[in-house]
Amino acid sequence: MSGVAKLAVRVADVVPVNDLVTRFRFEARDGSLLPAFSGGAHTVVEMDDHGTRRLNPYSLMSDPGDRSGYEISVRRDDAGRGGSLFMHRHVRPGMEMVLSHPVNLFGLDSRARKYLMIAGGIGITPFLSQIAQLSRTGGRFELHYAARNPALGSYMDRLQAAHPDRVQCYFDDDGQQIDLARVLSRQPIGTHLYVCGPKGMIAWVLGTAERMGWPPQSLHSEEFIAPPVGQPFTVELAASGHTLNVGAAQSLLEAIEASGVDAPYLCRGGACGQCETKVIRCDGQLLHNDHWLTPEEQAEGRKIMPCVSRAAGGTLVIDR
């Protein structure tokens, strides 16, 4: 929901990790402990980008049991809508910011006998907090982590030093690839698979596991998509009586919020389902980008997830 309690924090540290990735540490402004969280959780960071309000989800990468602060790592996306650029260019130690309470859409199944983790690029971040959690409780895990090259392999050194027998790294520039079929075939019964990375990698890993007969309940993935840019379009909010133009680099949800309408949201990445909204009429075409609606629901055209989805070619009327 949109109206829930937020965490008032101060930026405690900004650390460049490599050419693309910067780490940010947040601590409570009043010096109190932040809520504990579970490995795999994310927070939504609110940014005031020179008058434009941006809310981006980032996985928490610090130890979930350490309540003194939260850490995230942000990969700079030069072609994106500006959230990561704002974080890289403007966020400095001492700045006051607002975070959502942690939300977990990628939690560890606590009954698993073993956790098989597959990470691509910045998709490593949720695994950092999960590994910290498992290290406290003695849980078994195995991590396969692919990056473009060693210089862009964020936290590889740290992970390999701490868990030399459990972490395997791969570099695209050297033509290395996970021998997925072999890795999957060697796991004990009761293993749960977790994958986080680019869309293509997630589809490859899940598809391979399904074909090899892995039970669907044992397969977990997370991909936050940034709201894609597109053509401007017009939306009518039937319940509140507003007509709005959604800009090319603006999401439908952001346009609704900018008009002063309080709309529900949670992940803002098309994954959680909270912002689901009824479509009353669509003269053009719905451009669904979420992971929440089933393909059948997307084809029916009666619902839309305004955090990542858009319309084109005519007026959209929604129940908001």
Binding site: M1, A5, P35, S100, V103, L266, Q274
Partner: peptide, 11 residues
Amino acid sequence: LKFLLKLQHGA
């Protein structure tokens, strides 16, 4: 159930 799965810490 749909509502509860969205239940947030702190709320």
